[in-house]
């Protein structure tokens, strides 16, 4: 339809703007600290986009994305260090392993819904964390963890520039795929499932399979983000993948929006950048996080970004 194509075009213009934005910031940001904050925002945004697909569109909550994020980080590191695979191919490994694992686990776990699904995914994150801290022969546990990942200094650029652009390109590709999926029959099937599983089935959607694919995609996105996170730091340990990480990823989606992919990117940026802007914030970080989440859920349960966007458009219409 006309409108469908124009929304697709609008989205691709936004993607172009995203690339320009990254490029401008890359040049404009002089401090190494801000540049790494930007890089982390881009990395987390990938995982958040995946979670939006699962939560916002298919209506399936997951408080366990940290597990797939960690799985991606470990499998990429394993591929590079033990199998001698180049880092770029390592990204593919980091998407495939969590994606496959996510698909396997999705079938049983997505028979649950609501409270029980939230609980089960949270338990998954907790199990992963325990395994990551204990299975030292593979993960290095908490000390030393994974160390000595190679510096990515392609084309004579410094490590941080390369990772920033790698993260940016991955984010653009992942977002484009997500947008296309949403725009097509898969996206319509997801939204039908969110509305009613009976309605979805009666239009011919294999609900269990479609939900599992959505779960696998979200897991793969989280895995890619995790691998980039590992590449960026070059050394990490299990404490990065505790339950708090899963909740943080959930926060990004909530702060952004449950109904657009752009909201997730906005949310990731907000969660990563805001703490740095407040001086001495570290003490009260958790408290402020918690209260912000409470305030958002009380006042704007569909996501802060979406509610703000609605306010703006309503005002524009009123004028």
């Amino acid at each position: 339809m006309k409108s469908a194509n124009s929304s697709l075009r609008r989205n691709f213009i936004r993607l172009g703007l995203l690339v320009v934005g990254i490029a401008v910031l890359d040049v404009a940001l002089t401090s190494q600290f801000y540049r790494s904050t930007l890089t982390l925002s881009l990395i987390f945004a990938i995982a958040a986009v995946g979670l939006t697909l699962l939560m916002g569109f298919a209506g399936q909550v997951s408080i366990g994305q940290g597990a797939f994020f960690g799985l991606g980080a470990y499998s990429a590191a394993f591929a590079i260090q033990q199998l001698g695979i180049p880092p770029l191919v390592g990204l593919v490994v980091a998407a495939v392993v969590p994606g496959f694992f996510g698909y396997l686990i999705a079938r049983p776990i997505l028979r649950l819904s609501g409270n029980n699904l939230a609980l089960a995914t949270l338990a998954l994150a907790a199990v992963f964390y325990v395994v990551a801290t204990q299975w030292s022969s593979v993960t290095g546990g908490i000390d030393p963890g994974i160390t000595g990942l190679p510096a990515l200094d392609y084309f004579g650029l410094s490590h941080i520039h390369v990772v920033l652009w790698l993260a940016g390109i991955c984010l653009v590709i992942c977002t484009a795929v997500a947008l296309l999926l949403i725009d097509g029959r898969f996206g319509r099937a997801l939204m039908a499932i969110k509305t009613s599983e009976v309605v979805a089935s009666c239009t011919g959607v294999d609900v269990a399979r479609t939900k599992a694919i959505a779960f696998a995609i979200a897991a793969a996105y989280a895995g890619i983000a995790g691998a980039l996170f590992g590449y960026f730091l070059r050394a990490f340990n299990a404490t990065s993948f505790n339950v708090g990480l899963s909740i943080e990823l959930l926060m990004m989606v909530i702060v952004g929006s449950l109904s657009t992919v752009w909201g997730a990117i906005f949310g990731a940026l907000a969660i990563m950048v805001l703490p740095n802007l407040l001086e001495g914030f570290d003490h009260a970080k958790l408290l402020v996080y918690g209260l912000a989440m409470v305030a958002i859920m009380m006042l704007a349960p569909n996501g802060l970004g979406e509610t703000l966007a609605k306010l703006v458009t309503r005002r524009r219409v009123a004028e």
Binding site: I247, L286, L287, V288, G290, A292, M293, V294
Partner: peptide, 9 residues
């Protein structure tokens, strides 16, 4: 969950 975070903080 948010309240839990706030209490912890």
């Amino acid at each position: 969950i948010g309240t839990g975070l706030a209490i912890r903080g």
